[in-house]
């Protein structure tokens, strides 16, 4: 068996921007002194006249992105998730989302898998923050193929989009001809006993968890929720009706992210099924190797299995 390709979604983002730059001369990229890390440096090298560095000033960068967008450009603004969704939250809300401007926020280094830099840089609250903003679309791709497809789709969409990318190289899940459907959750494999709704790097863990559950005679349905807002309620509720139990899995706080969004949708459907959330519990991260941290914080296939059994027991 060939080695599994491992690529960080931030790398796929950088490459997709270069691809976009070649086919759309209205694409402009902004960064805040992190071009090497966010991978927008690839675009800078290819299209230096359409790349602008704001320096370490994320609030101003978001405002500049907004102003540029009013003049007809499709603007990608990048920094780490902590600074994009956290530090520049209010600029994103008031200068980008409120006027509904065509700005794509490329937030890299999301979640605990930032690794050694530690809690100050491990943003596990960005989805919660962005979800609460009207007009905002949130996409959290699972691998490099999906990340590329999401970037290309975001450029076609007119309006604000928050795209969440990781630092850690993750295994490729999808074939190169994978079609990204805007706002549509993807049922990766069908099952009968429990639904696992996963997003980002937890999709791969969910696929592994399915194998582990199968060994114990439990049939899991796997849904890749790449778009967290707007949430594809139809696909998720149809699966819930079929399996009668849901586990959510995300590299984000259990508060306000995918788990919350799914729980809200299920509760309001009036067809309640147990929803058990797996994510970073209400705590800060710490320094350490990314893969080790993912296990320490319970973000792995084994914990999805445990949560799946818990969800089934609550039926």
């Amino acid at each position: 068996m060939a080695d599994v390709i491992k690529t960080a979604t931030r790398d796929a983002y950088g490459k997709a921007l270069v691809e976009l730059g070649g086919i759309n001369d209205k694409v402009v990229v902004l960064d805040a002194d992190l071009a090497a890390a966010t991978k927008t440096g690839m675009f800078k090298k290819a299209f230096p006249e359409r790349f602008f560095d704001s320096g370490i000033a994320e609030g101003n960068m978001m405002g500049v992105a907004a102003g540029l967008a009013t003049t007809g450009y499709t603007v990608f603004a990048s920094t780490f998730a902590m600074f994009a969704a956290g530090r520049a939250y209010e600029q994103v809300r008031n200068s980008i989302a409120y006027p509904n401007l065509n700005v794509k926020i490329g937030a890299t280094h999301a979640g605990i898998s930032v690794g050694e830099d530690g809690a100050s840089h491990q943003c596990c609250e960005d989805i919660a923050l962005m979800r609460a903003i009207p007009n905002m679309v949130i996409i959290n791709p699972a691998d490099d193929v999906e990340a590329r497809a999401a970037v290309l789709a975001a450029a076609e969409y007119v309006g604000p989009v928050y795209m969440r990318f990781g630092r850690l190289a993750v295994p490729r899940i999808f074939d190169e001809d994978y079609k990204f459907e805007w706002g549509k959750a993807v049922v990766l494999s069908e099952g009968a006993d429990v639904t696992i709704c996963a997003t980002g790097l937890m999709v791969k863990e969910a696929i592994e968890a399915k194998e582990l559950l199968a060994a114990e005679g439990i049939s899991a349905e796997i849904i890749n929720v790449h778009t967290i807002k707007p949430l594809d309620k139809e696909t998720i509720l149809a699966s819930a009706a079929k399996t009668g139990a849901i586990v959510t899995a995300e590299e984000h706080s259990i508060i306000g992210g995918l788990g919350s969004a799914v729980a809200e949708a299920v509760c309001e459907s009036g067809k309640g099924v147990p929803v058990v959330r797996l994510g970073v519990n209400d705590e800060f991260g710490r320094s350490g190797p990314a893969v080790e941290l993912l296990h320490i914080y319970g973000l792995d296939a084994q914990n999805i299995v445990a949560k799946a059994k818990q969800a089934i027991s609550l039926k």
Partner: peptide, 9 residues
């Protein structure tokens, strides 16, 4: 900041 972005545009 938005004015800067417009001027840049």
């Amino acid at each position: 900041s938005a004015a800067c972005g417009m001027a840049l545009g």
